[in-house]
């Protein structure tokens, strides 16, 4: 019996030895992915900004595309995304945990349904709606973005925890683990990949939605895009769109690294 385990191990080693050089190249890329992809997207962003500022392609573009402007919009965009998703994580994860507690199960629809409804309202409409309550500016945008990213995180947190094999929880209970110890040592680690998937989805979507914030004067890369549309200057549209796309890739990968770090701990 003890032999079978050893065999598995040696099988893995021999499988690694027998891969072709091309496969090994791709495996290498996969392994360095956590560092490589964020670095590449960061480099691409810097190169893009430098290039566009130096080659705006016209006088109108040149007035908007200077370092001060672009970096401000970039900073505003990142702030919108990080504060928005950060707030959403801080609300949705605890809420998701709460609605999976046995005593709270029957209240699940009370939380689930309003959050579902919030997701069905288009992002622009949410902005317009809260504009009338909170007025123009950063605060309203943050609120809308927070509301908009609640669902994926909440849904993934609760289904990640509910999806755990009941036998595992029962074994933990039967061995005398306290409920909060089960949560920390069993439930959260096992649900982590699914919770992180929700956070990643929410963050990437948020990078796109944050571009809408410009309509209520909260700035961000949306400003570049909307100005580009108004002045019919494609260079501006591309610059704004590509920068936010690269930002999405960067954040997605950084969150992936965070997940790996948490899992190995």
């Amino acid at each position: 019996m003890t032999d079978s385990g050893v065999n598995i191990n040696s099988a893995v080693i021999s499988a690694e030895e027998s891969v072709s050089p091309t496969r090994r190249f791709f495996i290498g890329i996969q392994k360095s992915g956590p560092v490589l992809v964020p670095l590449l997207s960061l480099a691409a962003m810097i190169v893009l900004i430098i290039y566009m500022v130096n080659n705006p392609g016209g006088a109108i573009e040149a007035r908007i595309l200077n370092y001060g402007n672009v970096l401000r919009m970039f900073r505003e965009h990142i702030t919108l995304v990080l504060v928005g998703s950060g707030a959403a994580i801080l609300t949705s994860v605890p809420l998701g945990i709460l609605i999976t507690r046995p005593a709270m199960r029957r209240y699940t629809p009370l939380i689930d349904n309003p959050v579902n409804v919030a997701q069905t309202v288009p992002g622009l409409a949410i902005l317009a709606l809260f504009l009338t309550i909170f007025g123009l500016g950063f605060r309203t945008a943050i609120f809308a973005l927070w509301l908009y990213s609640l669902l994926p995180i909440l849904r993934n947190t609760s289904s990640g925890i509910q999806g755990i094999e009941p036998g595992i929880i029962e074994a933990a209970r039967g061995m005398g683990m306290r409920p909060w110890r089960i949560l920390i040592r069993i439930e959260l680690p096992l649900a982590l990949p699914i919770i992180m998937a929700g956070i990643k989805t929410a963050t990437v979507v948020l990078v796109g939605s944050a571009a809408l914030s410009t309509f209520i004067g909260a700035g961000g890369l949306g400003e570049l895009i909307v100005t580009g549309i108004d002045l019919m200057r494609p260079t501006l549209i591309y610059t704004g769109a590509i920068l936010s796309a690269l930002l999405a890739i960067l954040l997605d990968n950084l969150l992936g690294s965070l997940e790996r770090y948490l899992r190995e701990r």
């Binding site: 074994a171 005398g176 096992l190």
Partner: peptide, 17 residues
């Protein structure tokens, strides 16, 4: 009580992580 009673269920009870 549970800490002082051994508990074995089918193999699914092991913590996979």
């Amino acid at each position: 009580l549970r800490l002082d009673i051994g508990y074995v269920i089918q193999e699914i009870g092991l913590f996979p992580h």
